[in-house]
Nucleic acid binder design. Sequence first.
DNA 1: CGCCAACAAAAAGTCAGACTTATTCATCAC
DNA 2: GTGATGAATAAGTCTGACTTTTTGTTGGCG
Lengths: 233, 233
Amino acid sequence: MSTTGRGLHGHVLESLGPAIAAGEYPPGSVLRTDELAQRFDVSRSVMREAVRVLESMHLVESRRRVGVTVRPKSEWNVYDPQVIRWRLAGADRPGQLRSLTVLRSAIEPVAAGLAAKNATADQCAELTECALGMVAHSRGHQLEGYLVHDIAFHRVVLTASGNEMFARLGDVVAEVLAGRTHHEVMFEDPDPAAVTLHVQVAEAVRAGDAARAEHLTREITVGALQELDILAP
Amino acid sequence: MSTTGRGLHGHVLESLGPAIAAGEYPPGSVLRTDELAQRFDVSRSVMREAVRVLESMHLVESRRRVGVTVRPKSEWNVYDPQVIRWRLAGADRPGQLRSLTVLRSAIEPVAAGLAAKNATADQCAELTECALGMVAHSRGHQLEGYLVHDIAFHRVVLTASGNEMFARLGDVVAEVLAGRTHHEVMFEDPDPAAVTLHVQVAEAVRAGDAARAEHLTREITVGALQELDILAP
DNA sequence: CGCCAACAAAAAGTCAGACTTATTCATCAC
DNA sequence: GTGATGAATAAGTCTGACTTTTTGTTGGCG
């Protein structure tokens, strides 16, 4: 599932990245390339490549004579899927999940509205298929099957919006939904009302009713916010 | 203004990144590290570091025996500020500006609503200061001064929302606003209605009126969409 | 006592070359 | 035609020497 890990430098990243993302090294901490190379038992070339990648994510800054310093969290490229994964794997997973859910609540309704205008016939069909799959797996503890269709549903909506920025949030939404199912309390079957809303969104998109698609999706995201107690009930 | 450029590998990136982002190399194009190193007159080590960064942005993929292949645009990390800058500097600048403006229209109203709940007293003061600055520079071709306060205003709102994901869009919004002023037709003074809206948003945030702040900001973004003919007038 | 300049140390940056490894393609036997 | 064998290729890795920038210190001078 993870995209990195190929090559030695990937291996190093997989170990060092999460550590930094988890705040193990407070902002301003200084790492030396040579020391890191020794610690991970790789050559300086490999370690330098890893540092370059961390630098491109704005997790660290490399300066001559001083070393590799960890940047404050406020400067990180928090939209980098890799960084998101690393943070979700770490200590501030709950906070990260909250931030991302709020982001969802802003993006997805607008995306659904655009999808109603721009979705192709194929995408409409795929959407109803996903919604029906959700219905089919909504009862009797088929959480995994439900999740698959839920993820696919939201991914199609984001893609069908026609906006590339929205489309690229598909992976993020997938992480959030999967996280909710796997790590949060989610032993019971999904809320029937939420399932119905998804079906209705699919209908609205097919009908080209942008306002309705947006409104219904907003109700879905409001539900997601309430689950995390971000909104008052 | 640009964060990259330090070191040889930065120079290479500054040249190769925009070229790829501009679509100069169609998806699937194959580059060889050694050839690139020769072309840019740098050592392989340096070129490898540059390629690693491009790889972390998902602009290219490096595979043994085949080379460095350019990925399809749909896989790029389009939220990477560097990638955004590169694309804004290239041929599909208009499309990029449209995508980002739509993104703004989704994010900023929600951010303003949250800001109304979470903004500190300092942030409220800063906000009104920005709004007043906009008013002060809204007449008599003081576009640069107006822009500075406009950017600051939106940055404060995004930061005051308390959501780190929103906060990190400050730079993106700045790019969009600056782009509109510098490269689009913007010879006349800003729309007085827009200026008023900003002042009112500042008031709503200070008053803690989330719904009003969100609604007013939505009106601002609708105006931005109309400017680009994304919405019917 | 304070300030500026020269100097020395430290760590990243750069380079060149040799070697390893995975992958692909072509060849050949079956 | 299919599957195994092998050679070619380009990335991956390592090492060691060298350069450059930055920082902190030292020492001289006002």
